[in-house]
Structures are given as C-alpha cells and as structure tokens.
Nucleic acid binder design. Structure first.
Length: 109
DNA sequence: TTCCTGACTTTAC
DNA sequence: AGTAAAGCCAGGA
C-alpha cells in the first residue's frame, strides 16, 4: 500500500507542533498519528533521528526520558528540556503536571 | 520478499 | 510497592 507520508514524517510533524517549554508522551503522540502502538513513535524517532525533530520533548508516560537518546545521551535530552524551561523532579523525571502537552491542544494539527 | 527488533503502555502477579 | 509478560506495527537487514 502506498504511504504518502512515512510514519516518521507524521510523528515528526506532531513533535514539531509541541510548544517550546512543553512535553508530551509517546502514547499521546501515538494517538495523534492515528495509531495504537507507542513503541513505533520511539522507533520512528530513533530510526530517523532527525535533528529537526525535537524528540527531547517526547518522554515516557512516567515522565522519564528516553534511555537511548541519539543526540548525546539522556543527560543531553534533560539539558535541552531544562533550557526550555521544563522543570524536573528530584526523581530525575520531568514535571508532567506542569509541562505536559495536552492531547486536546493537538486539534490544531 | 520475509524475519527480527524496538526511545512504549497496560494489565497481571 | 516493584517485577513480568503481552500486544501492537513500522523500519532495517
């Protein structure tokens, strides 16, 4: 079947739509690209690792960062988030309560 | 083309 | 509470 846009392209589009200083989870992104599997989101980003894709804004539902961030490691990812104003908890997890990008905001896409 | 892997999430013990 | 297994599908070899 013919796919006009690669799965990565869809994921990338959604990730780029995330406002600066906000974050979202793989599950939410998965829903935005009309899928049920969150693993593909991470897979897509990891396989493509496009520098234009702010994948550092995509985290686990738990708030933890990706274990295999391809841009310089998880610490680099955390640094980028902090730089954008995203707060972290003592557990090393991102503050989902104050920075989670709500799925409803995606209606603009 | 087929087969295997994977940056997840959820449910169950 | 933490640990284990299942399920889903697109890429890469």
């Amino acid at each position: 079947m013919k796919m006009r846009l690669s799965f990565f392209s869809q994921v990338c589009a959604v990730v780029k739509s995330i406002p600066k200083g906000k974050i979202t989870t793989y599950g939410i992104v998965a829903r935005l690209v009309d899928t049920k599997d969150s693993r593909r989101i991470g897979h897509a980003l990891h396989a493509n690792r496009d520098p234009n894709c702010p994948c550092h804004r995509v985290v686990f539902k738990d708030g933890s960062l990706a274990p295999g961030y391809a841009f310089g490691g998880p610490k680099e990812q955390r640094f980028r988030l902090e730089k954008e104003g995203v707060g972290f908890k003592a557990s090393g997890k991102v503050d989902l309560v104050n920075h989670l990008w709500n799925e409803s905001l995606s209606l603009a896409i």
